[in-house]
């Protein structure tokens, strides 16, 4: 056993044990670790976004715009004028902060409306092509192999299950039931993958505790 001499590793190990202690029951040690995690995460995100978005994207571009205007005036090219457009983003960002003031908080909805509207428009074609048309194209297959038959039948029956304009009775109901089976198998596969994912994270922490921290694993 060769415990790590690094104080950072020790803090990480003790905090991991603190989070794990919730499995036994809620306790002050867990609450401290949870609060610390949330606080550090919020601080980290604030600093990251401040230095990667606010400073270079907003202030940087507006600074370039002002500098260009002072040196070249109205003779500047179109691409130079585009730097001024960041003011619009800055205003929308500022309006979001108004949410903190209940009386004028409603103004922040303008920013949200802009974000939702542009995102919907931006994604419309991409989703239609990647998740709609291309998936339909991939499903229209010749029924020449078992795999193709399962894919076509599964998709067709799954769609029938979600067709609620007709009562699920008789042959239609039978196809809908087949659709349920396909859906259940899909959910089962997803659950299996989720279990694997969670186990992987636990293995990672165990390797940290017994390997990196306590030095018990070679």
């Amino acid at each position: 056993m060769h415990p790590s001499p690094d104080i950072g590793i020790w803090i990480g190990g003790l905090l991991t044990l603190g989070i794990f202690s919730f499995l036994y029951g809620d306790n002050p040690y867990y609450k401290f670790c949870e609060a610390l995690f949330v606080g550090v995460s919020a601080g980290h995100w604030f600093i990251t976004l401040f230095w990667t978005v606010f400073i270079p994207k907003l202030l940087g571009n507006i600074g370039i715009a002002i500098h260009t205007f002072r040196t070249e005036g109205f003779a500047a090219g179109m691409s130079d004028y585009m730097h001024w457009s960041y003011i619009f983003g800055g205003i929308l960002g500022f309006l979001m902060i108004l949410r903190l003031f209940p009386k004028i908080g409603w103004i922040s909805r303008w920013s949200l409306a802009f974000v939702v509207g542009t995102t919907a428009g931006y994604y419309f074609i991409n989703y239609l092509v990647s998740n709609g048309l291309m998936q339909i194209q991939k499903t229209i297959l010749p029924l020449t192999s078992v795999g193709n038959i399962i894919l076509v039948v599964g998709t067709f029956c799954g769609l029938i299950y979600f067709f609620f304009s007709k009562e699920h009775k008789g042959a239609f109901g039978g196809l809908a039931r087949v659709g349920i089976w396909f859906l259940m198998i899909t959910f089962g596969a997803s659950f299996g993958y989720t279990v694997m994912s969670r186990m992987s994270l636990l293995i990672g922490r165990m390797d940290y505790i017994f390997g990196i921290w306590l030095g018990m694993i070679r």
């Binding site: 499995l23 186990m199 636990l202 293995i203 165990m206 390797d207 017994f210 390997g211 018990m216 694993i217």
Partner: peptide, 13 residues
């Protein structure tokens, strides 16, 4: 939880 922890940790050794 104990069973899972042992099942995960023991193989690492």
């Amino acid at each position: 939880f104990t069973f899972i922890a042992v099942a995960i940790a023991l193989p690492l050794f």
